[in-house]
Design a protein around this nucleic acid. Structure first.
Lengths: 74, 74
DNA sequence: TACGTATGTAATATATTTTTGACATTATGT
DNA sequence: ACATAATGTCAAAAATATATTACATACGTA
């Protein structure tokens, strides 16, 4: 796949706003705690479905949480 | 993972607007043609990265192409 | 008819995401 | 000092996404 951009996110910010622990987010979404940790540390790209679940939990849009920053642009 | 909603998309609509074949979309994004076919037929949830690449190709936002329709809501 | 293009299916292989479990660290409260 | 909660690391397994190849069908058109 192309690598036009780099994925980044503000998951920990949205999580802090809600006052949730990583474990609590994991439980609410129905994934493992490891998954939340890995996403916050930007280890890989989640499935679109998981991205939607997170956006829904945090009452916001996917693109408010996740950004795709095109390389070589500023 | 939770199944709060069902994923759907209008990939074929956006593709038609651009006048691209499935093969052309695949080539531009750098994935296989099978992947495009499977997504259009809603076989699985793509990675968020791929969703961003598609949105970028079609000059629109992820949530314009993909929807997460909450179950039991109308 | 024959050729090229577009879409589709199916099977198997590879890559990536997600789970599981065990353990370490730091901070807070008793 | 001890307990508990929160975050983190690591490794291996399981699940899902993606690639690859081969083949089928339909359509337009030379």
């Amino acid at each position: 796949m192309n690598e036009l951009g780099e994925l980044s996110n503000q998951l920990s910010v949205f999580r802090a706003k809600k006052g949730y622990s990583q474990a609590e987010v994991a439980k609410r979404i129905g994934v493992s705690r490891q998954t939340i940790i890995s996403l916050e540390k930007n280890k890989y790209s989640p499935s679109l479905k998981l991205a939607f679940e997170l956006a829904y939990l945090f009452d916001t849009g996917i693109e408010d949480i996740f950004q795709y920053n095109l390389k070589g642009e500023d």
